[in-house]
Design a protein around this nucleic acid. Sequence first.
DNA 1: TAATTCTGAGACACCGGTGTCTCATTCGAC
DNA 2: GTCGAATGAGACACCGGTGTCTCAGAATTA
Lengths: 184, 184
Amino acid sequence: MATDRDSVLEAAVGVLSRRPTAHLDEIARAAGISRATLHRLFPGRDALIGEVGMLALRRLASALDTAAVEEGDAHAALRRLIDEIVPDAMLCAYLTGESQLYDDEAVNDLWEAQIARLHALFLRGQQQGVFRIELSAAWLSEAFFDLLAGIGWAVQDGRLAPRDATFSLAELFLGGALRTPRPH
Amino acid sequence: MATDRDSVLEAAVGVLSRRPTAHLDEIARAAGISRATLHRLFPGRDALIGEVGMLALRRLASALDTAAVEEGDAHAALRRLIDEIVPDAMLCAYLTGESQLYDDEAVNDLWEAQIARLHALFLRGQQQGVFRIELSAAWLSEAFFDLLAGIGWAVQDGRLAPRDATFSLAELFLGGALRTPRPH
DNA sequence: TAATTCTGAGACACCGGTGTCTCATTCGAC
DNA sequence: GTCGAATGAGACACCGGTGTCTCAGAATTA
């Protein structure tokens, strides 16, 4: 049973990612609590969805912090980021897929801040000569997130083994992003 | 004003892709018709969404046909496919993103048939030695679609110039998928 | 011009999800 | 063991979207 807020939010993601229009009853059941308690924790559907977005963004920000993406070689930094973020790939997938989150101002601000950090990482990598300059840093950022979301889906749906997730993402993306491919 | 069904469906994608829960009023307005006429063309919301999915799948199947993905060198076939499908990237993005479509049996069957063709293309490419075998054909198929959807979003939101779309998709994906990267 | 068909605007009831409340029960603290 | 807080189950009304219908006006055709 999930009593604390974050546990409920994780359960909510599990349901909402598959069916964004799922009823609150279903979400409450997935979290192992009643609809009344769910409503006590989050006053309304919008609040719940917004909190889910904020949770995902906190995880993303945390991964960016832990990976120290602002420091050192951009290639190594990106590999550190992949290691950190892949476990939360599904959360990021929900983040990109749920367009309703774009209405939430707090979510939007934090989202753009994190995207900016990712964008800066690719820009720095291009200046360092490790990332290709034919592809814009904006597109690299977006593509990275698209593949990260894809990893999340593939793992959740059982199409990809969890232990292959990091490798599959890193190899495919870096192969296309690095200026000198596959210098393992 | 969009009188024929396909025009309405295209307008519907434009709205539904951004807000999957958009009201029928909004969709009708986007198509330039009244809600009454919309309901005459498609009896209900589910029917409309299902038809949108079928339209997207028809386009995808058509692109796979025109590109003749079953014939010749897998690398060249994939490049032909990219050229054909990029204009309908947004349609494919909606196809992958709208989980509600998975409930529609007709959509599901056609979807899996096209995915199978894509999967076979990558498998053939791996056997031909042009695609990497460290990455599963299933993951290559999924990743290709993820990036295709990303292209659709980036172009629609103005983050990527339409004329860069094909290049950006091909270069990034092929860089990661090809066994010998960038033999232009 | 006249007739037919199609469309748009509006009104209306139905329905399902949500928000809110109550109350019995259970869990935890002291 | 007792008290207080929290939870679950249920009931209820509200609300918005949808499905349906009607009718007037416009477009097309004869």
